[in-house]
């Protein structure tokens, strides 16, 4: 079996030896040391993160232009958002960032169980972020369907005109339609530029949510490798380190999106 085979297919005969994956890891043959490989991988990942930041830079510039030209539309649009959901999601992401950093630390110290647990918590936090975003924010605003436990629902009790899934979801007449651009169909708006605000809102939070999903996929992959063959340990944890960098970037973007979208007045 060649070195390459060992690396690309670590679940082989040699797994039976009981050696953890991180000990069996052999750096690419073109590197002089494992450290060099690690440094190059990390640098490459930072270059990729730079392109990610520039992707969001375009969004932030769009935001700047639209808010500069239509400040009232942004104050008005922001008033539809509940800052408490935004703050809760910020806390969820910050905690997940902490657990991600702690997971890397755990693998650096060869604490495999703790590392796996922290990866799982990070994944669950990401899932929680998406659930809050889609259940309590996107769905009601787009369609008017509220989940029955939504605390905002009691305010609209007199407008409820439908139920679904045995009362799990309730429909509030006229609430939906706060969609971006040409899809906008909310009838009670007073600001002519409101569809523009929703375009910015859904672009920014949507692309961010996509990054959350990608980050969760990477974390799940790391978790699987850790569970199957202890892939990460003191001498080799490149993948979990770079996944962490990606996850922190997602957090970093949200740190700016939260006040820009929720705390305008």
């Amino acid at each position: 079996m060649t070195t390459l085979d060992t690396r690309s297919n670590p679940i082989g005969a040699d797994v039976q030896s009981g050696e953890p994956g991180w000990k069996r890891y052999v750096p690419g043959h073109h590197w002089r040391t494992a450290d060099e490989e690690f440094d190059a991988c990390t640098l490459g990942f930072w270059l990729f993160l730079a392109t990610e930041v520039l992707l969001f830079a375009g969004l932030f510039c769009g935001y700047t232009i639209m808010r500069y030209k239509h400040p009232e539309a942004f104050v008005n649009g922001s008033s539809y958002l509940d800052w408490r959901w935004g703050a809760l999601n910020t806390v969820v992401l910050l905690i997940s960032s902490y657990t991600m950093a702690a997971a890397i630390r755990a693998f650096q110290l060869d604490r495999q169980k703790a590392g796996r647990l922290l990866l799982a918590i990070t994944f669950i936090c990401g899932l929680g972020f998406l659930v809050i975003k889609f259940t309590f924010e996107y769905t009601p605003k787009l369609s008017g369907w509220f989940i029955a436990i939504d605390p905002a629902l009691h305010h609209y009790a007199s407008l409820v005109d439908g139920e679904a899934l045995g009362g799990l979801f309730k429909h509030v007449a006229g609430y939906g339609g706060k969609a971006p651009g040409q899809f906008f169909s909310y009838a009670f708006s007073s600001d002519p530029w409101e569809p523009l605000w929703w375009s910015i809102y859904y672009c920014a939070t949507g692309i961010h949510a996509l990054h959350v999903i990608i980050g969760m996929t990477l974390i799940a992959w790391c978790y699987r490798r850790a569970v199957l063959y202890n892939a990460y340990g003191p001498s080799h944890y490149t993948m979990v380190e770079n996944t962490g960098l990606y996850w922190h970037l997602v957090d970093l973007i949200w740190i700016f999106l939260f006040p820009l979208l929720y705390l305008i007045h």
Binding site: S97, Y98, M100, A101, G244, L245, H248, L249, D251, L252, I255, F256
Partner: peptide, 10 residues
């Protein structure tokens, strides 16, 4: 906040 995340988490 971003600086703290960059310096210590990243």
């Amino acid at each position: 906040k971003a600086t703290l995340v960059l310096m210590f988490f990243m």
